[in-house]
């Protein structure tokens, strides 16, 4: 009797795992397929039942990819843009969030309200004015043109403010009494405790910028300045010749940094989400 109860409980324990395994297979399958497809010819990819086995065309695919664009250069561009953007967004947004959470100044709440309202402006509306502005600055077709416009990430400011609201003000007071200036308080007292939420923001910003397509498409002209998503998308544009083998190889190369980045910050990411959930 006792034993059968135990078994029943065991079965219930197993069910979630089975479900999770199924979901894992479903989500990993397309990623694996991309890696395998990168080694096949375009024709093989279109044949149903392309085996989950390595093909022999990876060298040819690499050659075709490089012929379209120097993919290493494009990867470097993508990494440069995503990393600079991520670092700056984390810095600016945490500072702004700190100011909104802990400083009292005239019009603070109105200003914050206006800022959050700006999240409602669709990106498409801003394209033409942004283009005019940046071409006036002579920045079109340069990498900063991709980074600058989205630096003030309002979502990030909001996220940081919500998290910093719960930060004990007494701690700030005592630091100030000990003679620390605002900047010092921020960098040495506040920021270290914000690591989990900063990691969340970093992952979100990095992934967002890594996959960013529309604005870089408009702002960049030379293939040497392109980011990886641009190269892949333009190789896929309608036309007679689409070399999916080369595209899949490029996609594999683009996937790896994101996977590495996520694994690196994964622990913090989950912590950040949880801490936000409790405090927010």
């Amino acid at each position: 009797m006792n034993k059968s109860k135990k078994t029943a409980a065991g079965v219930y324990m197993v069910i979630p795992y089975i479900l999770l395994v199924i979901v894992a297979i479903v989500s990993v399958f397309p990623l694996l397929w991309v890696f395998f497809a990168a080694t096949h010819t375009n024709t093989q990819i279109y044949q149903t039942g392309m085996a989950f086995a390595l093909g022999g065309n990876i060298v040819e695919n690499y050659k075709n990819l490089m012929e379209f664009s120097n993919i290493w250069r494009n990867l470097a561009n993508s990494i440069f843009i995503a990393v600079v953007y991520t670092v700056l967004v984390c810095l600016i947004d945490s500072m702004a969030g700190f100011a909104f959470a802990k400083f009292t100044f005239k019009g603070r709440d109105t200003l914050f309200f206006v800022l959050t309202c700006s999240m409602f402006i669709p990106q498409q509306v801003t394209l033409v004015p942004l283009f005019i502005q940046l071409s006036g600055m002579g920045l079109i077709n340069t990498l900063p043109a991709v980074i600058l416009p989205s630096l003030t990430n309002i979502f990030g400011v909001f996220l940081m403010r919500q998290n910093l609201m719960a930060y004990p003000s007494d701690l700030l007071e005592s630091a100030r009494i000990d003679g620390a200036g605002d900047l010092r308080v921020f960098f040495t007292i506040v920021l270290p405790t914000m690591k989990p939420v900063l990691a969340s923001l970093a992952i979100l910003s990095f992934v967002q910028m890594w996959g960013n397509y529309l604005w870089p498409l408009i702002a960049l002209n030379d293939r040497d300045n392109f980011t990886v998503p641009l190269v892949l998308a333009l190789m896929r544009a309608p036309g007679q010749v689409v070399d999916n083998g080369a595209i899949m190889l490029g996609a594999s190369m683009a996937l790896l940094p994101v996977v590495v980045f996520f694994l690196f910050f994964q622990k913090n990411f989950i912590q950040g989400i949880l801490s936000g959930a409790v405090k927010g």
């Binding site: 250069r73 990494i79 440069f80 600079v84 670092v87 040497d224």
Partner: peptide
């Protein structure tokens, strides 16, 4: 921005990108 990236990702690759 440039200085920050150099600190952020080890420099060599990113600064050469900007220069080129």
């Amino acid at each position: 921005a440039l200085a920050l990236t150099m600190a952020g990702c080890g420099g060599a690759a990113s600064s050469s990108t900007a220069a080129s």
